[in-house]
């Protein structure tokens, strides 16, 4: 119990200290131009959105979730002109037969320019690997499936680890900004499930259980984005 509290407390302290440090540094650092072939040292914010296709898989069923939309934001510290450490968050939405599948992923990862591939001053490929955790929420838009009707469930929340990788291409636009095109694969497995209903605006967990059927959510995303700053 105390161990968990301490780890969370450390998380808070790390959040605060890193933000303050970065705030201080960004105020003082001289600005260098971010180029696809030479990433400027410092912290940068990248935002991308696009389309996805997803698959829900478990020991007892496999469901093709079809197309969806996703948005991803990455805040990274770029240590060298070709390597960065990033904190990323993404939101992915798929709608299937009366359900809204809303996947959130919060990850820590690295981004590196692809070595030994030809690139120019105006465009260069890169790759990323990340891992983290997040909840996937299944919202019942019409009525809940019969097994959940008695509890008055409005949505299910599954939680578990996330892994992902992507390959992309950055290019400088004629207007000067840097754009990116990225193909990203994510794998989200689940450890726990909660049945949730809302009491006015306050969510109430009706039931909580461990996930034992090896459920997972895999998605392939194609994203277009920009280096915002």
């Amino acid at each position: 119990m105390y161990g968990r509290c301490w780890s969370r407390f450390c998380f808070v302290v790390v959040c605060l200290c890193s933000t303050l440090t970065l705030a201080q540094e960004s105020g003082e650092a001289e600005r260098e131009v971010f180029r696809p072939d030479h990433w400027a040292r410092g912290f940068h914010f990248l935002a991308a959105s696009g389309l996805s296709t997803a698959l829900f898989n478990s020991r007892v069923q496999e469901a093709e979730l079809g197309g969806g939309a996703s948005i991803r934001m990455d805040v990274g510290y770029y240590w060298t002109p070709d390597f960065a450490v990033e904190i990323g968050s993404s939101v992915n939405l798929n709608r299937v037969e009366g359900f809204l599948i809303w996947d959130n992923q919060f990850t820590l990862g690295v981004r590196a320019r692809v070595p030994r591939l030809a690139y120019s001053r105006y465009g260069a490929p890169y790759m990323r690997f990340f891992s983290g955790r997040g909840p996937l929420i299944i919202v019942f838009e019409d009525e809940a499936p019969s097994v959940y009707q008695a509890s008055g469930a409005q949505r299910l929340q599954l939680e578990g680890p996330v892994f992902g990788a992507s390959i992309g291409y950055m290019q400088t636009a004629t207007t000067g900004g840097v754009w990116l095109l990225e193909l990203m694969l994510t794998f989200h497995s689940f450890e726990s499930l909660e049945i949730v209903k809302s009491n006015k605006d306050v969510p109430v967990v009706v039931q909580e259980e461990r996930v034992r059927d090896q459920s997972s959510f895999s998605a392939l995303h194609i994203l277009i984005g920009v280096v915002a700053f």
Binding site: R4, C5, R8, F9, F11, V12, L100, W102, N104, R133, G134, P135, I137, V139, R155, Q157, E159, E194, V196, S198, D201, V202, P203, V205
Partner: peptide, 24 residues
């Protein structure tokens, strides 16, 4: 309905994934 000073002291040490809806 749900607020208290006890929460205010205790909660900062236990962040979690909330169960709020999409709109929120």
């Amino acid at each position: 309905d749900h607020g208290s000073f006890r929460n205010w002291q205790k909660n900062p040490l236990s962040p979690h994934f909330d169960r709020d809806n999409f709109e929120n």
